[in-house]
């Protein structure tokens, strides 16, 4: 069963027809040719498809496209204009916070979301004082980035990359 929806992806508006079963991830990858968000598990278990969905980091493999008609999506490719890099991306490069690169766009989007959540003062599982301030400590970043598996295991470089980008804001 098909439905017509509109999406705004990386600043560009699209009108497209999707199957009611189509996820946002497949809509981007297979209909719109935007393969920046990756499919690693397709079940919300790896984080490779993380994008900013209406401003919040989200897994779009578990989001039906038809349920997000009118959504605003920013992928890692839309974080900065062509030829430039977002501070998180720059930090990932400098810290060598990836190897194969497949989980990386999701890590980058997740990190952008993390920095925003920290700015809002959102606590995490490792925040000692739930009512206090949140710092960009190793443990805070590592916990918040734990929704993004990296099989190459660049974790020890991802944390300083996020901290670097956070400090550079």
């Amino acid at each position: 069963m098909d439905a017509e929806i509109s999406l705004r992806v990386d600043g560009e508006s699209h009108r497209l027809t999707v199957d009611t079963r189509t996820t946002l991830l497949d809509a981007l990858r297979e209909r719109l040719g935007n393969t920046s968000p990756k499919k690693g598990c397709d079940h919300g278990q790896c984080g490779a498809c993380t994008v900013l969905l209406d401003g919040r980091r989200s897994l779009i493999c578990l989001a039906l496209a038809v349920a997000h008609d009118g959504a605003e999506i920013t992928t890692a490719d839309g974080l900065a204009p062509a030829g430039e890099l977002h501070p998180v991306q720059q930090a990932f490069l400098e810290q060598d916070a990836f190897q194969c690169g497949y989980c990386t766009p999701g890590q980058v989007c997740s990190a952008v979301g993390v920095l925003d959540e920290v700015d809002r003062g959102w606590p995490s599982h490792v925040t000692e004082d739930l009512t206090g301030d949140v710092e960009l400590s190793h443990d805070e970043v590592a916990e918040r980035m734990s929704g993004n598996l990296c099989r190459c295991a660049a974790y020890v470089n991802i944390v300083p990359a996020v901290q670097q980008a956070g400090g550079a804001r």
Binding site: G44, T50, G113, V114, R120, P123, H125, T131
Partner: peptide, 26 residues
């Protein structure tokens, strides 16, 4: 993240934060 929940119902805030991941909780 709600201040009232964090202050008055820490058990709930902690349970939520122990569940899944930032992306899924969003």
């Amino acid at each position: 993240a709600d201040r009232r929940v964090r202050e008055r119902y820490p058990v709930l805030a902690q349970a939520l934060l122990a569940g899944a991941t930032g992306q899924l909780r969003n």
